[in-house]
Computed example of a mutant assay.
Amino acid sequence: MSQPETAGRDRKRPALRLVETKDLSRDDWLEVRRTGIGGSDAAAAVGLNPYMSPLELWLDKTSRAEGMPRPAPDDTTSPTYWGTLLEPIVAASYTKQTGNRVRRINAVLRHPTIPWMLANIDREIVGARDVSILECKTAGEFGARLWREGAPEYVHIQVQHQLAVTGKAAAHVAVLLCGQALEVFRVDRDDLLISRLIELEERFWHYVATDTPPPADGSESADRALRHLYPGRGGTVDFADDRRLSSVFADLVAVREQIETHQALEAKLKQTIQQAMGEATRAVFETGTVSFKRSRDSSAVDLQRLLADHPELEAQYAIQKSGSRRFLVSN
Rank of each mutant, 00 (worst) to 15 (best):
V173E: 01
G234K: 03
E135R: 14
S298W: 10
E260A: 15
E260G: 06
E153A: 10
R26T: 00
L229A: 14
V159A: 11
G127M: 07
V131L: 09
L86W: 02
P88T: 05
L197I: 00
A65H: 14
S53W: 07
A169K: 08
R227N: 14
L307W: 04
Y81T: 01
A216R: 13
K61N: 11
E5T: 15
D190P: 01
L269W: 11
V173F: 06
T21G: 02
A216S: 11
E87K: 08
E201N: 04
R243A: 15
P69Y: 05
L313I: 08
S221M: 03
P214K: 06
A45K: 09
P14K: 07
V237A: 14
S63H: 12
Q160A: 01
K61M: 10
T84K: 10
D130C: 08
K12L: 15
P115R: 03
K137C: 09
D302R: 07
V255T: 05
V175C: 08
R129G: 10
V165I: 02
P311D: 07
H111A: 12
R296D: 13
A139D: 06
S132M: 13
R70K: 06
Y230W: 07
G143A: 12
K61E: 05
R326P: 00
Y317N: 04
K61W: 06
G83E: 08
Q3Y: 15
V155F: 03
H156Q: 12
V253D: 05
S330R: 12
Y81M: 08
T212W: 00
H228S: 11
T138A: 06
Q320L: 15
E266G: 02
E279P: 00
G38L: 10
Q274M: 11
H172L: 14
K137Y: 00
R17T: 07
S40C: 10
E20G: 07
T35R: 14
A43S: 04
K321H: 10
L118P: 03
L118T: 00
G36H: 08
S25H: 03
G143K: 08
D191V: 00
I157A: 14
A209P: 04
T35M: 13
K270T: 09
D41C: 13
E202S: 12
R104S: 12
A225T: 02
A169N: 13
Q275V: 13
W147I: 06
Q97Y: 03
R203S: 13
T287L: 14
Q271F: 12
Y207R: 03
A240W: 05
Y154V: 07
A225D: 11
E314K: 13
E199P: 06
W82N: 08
K12E: 15
S219F: 01
R145D: 13
I133W: 13
H156W: 13
C136G: 01
L193Y: 11
R34C: 07
F327T: 06
H228T: 03
P71K: 10
A151G: 04
S298C: 00
I133P: 06
V46K: 00
D10H: 14
L265T: 11
T21Y: 00
I89T: 15
G218Y: 02
H206Q: 15
L265Y: 02
G278K: 10
